[in-house]
Amino acid sequence: MNRRAFLLSGAALVAVSVEARATPAEVARLIAALTEGARVVEGGMKLDLPLLVENGNVVAMSITVDDPPPGQHVESLHVFAEANPLPEVLHVRFGPAAARPRIATRIRLATSQSVIALAKLSDGSFRRDSVDLLVTLAACLD
């Protein structure tokens, strides 16, 4: 392999690794499609993630929504990661047998980024919380 071919293959590798990433703009589009212009209030819920992630393959995440006003309930939860290869993480819809608008799971994070969670209330409005975190060992690509 001559030098030119070697450099080209290196450039191709960089292109491949950069190609598969969501962007904040893409997440903003997904959120706009989800909310459809409904009111989005910052807060009223807690997205719990570590600020410093040592292993992006297993990140403990929990979401707790504060009790909605009487007569209302939380319909669904939606989680997005701005710099994962795929921006969507999880969509949850609660049914009538659910007790608390609260879930916990473990997720993968490809790199340091913002994770955004939205909760939809039964009146159609949304609550939002986000966490900016640092990832030292990335997931997904190796």
């Binding site: 990140v59 969509h91 879930i103 916990a104 799971t105």
Partner: peptide, 25 residues
Amino acid sequence: NDMLVLEATLFPAISANPYLSFWAV
């Protein structure tokens, strides 16, 4: 008892050996 507690759509961003915790009444 045939009443929905929750339904979820999972994406590849969920870790291997998925863990889920939620509440019912």
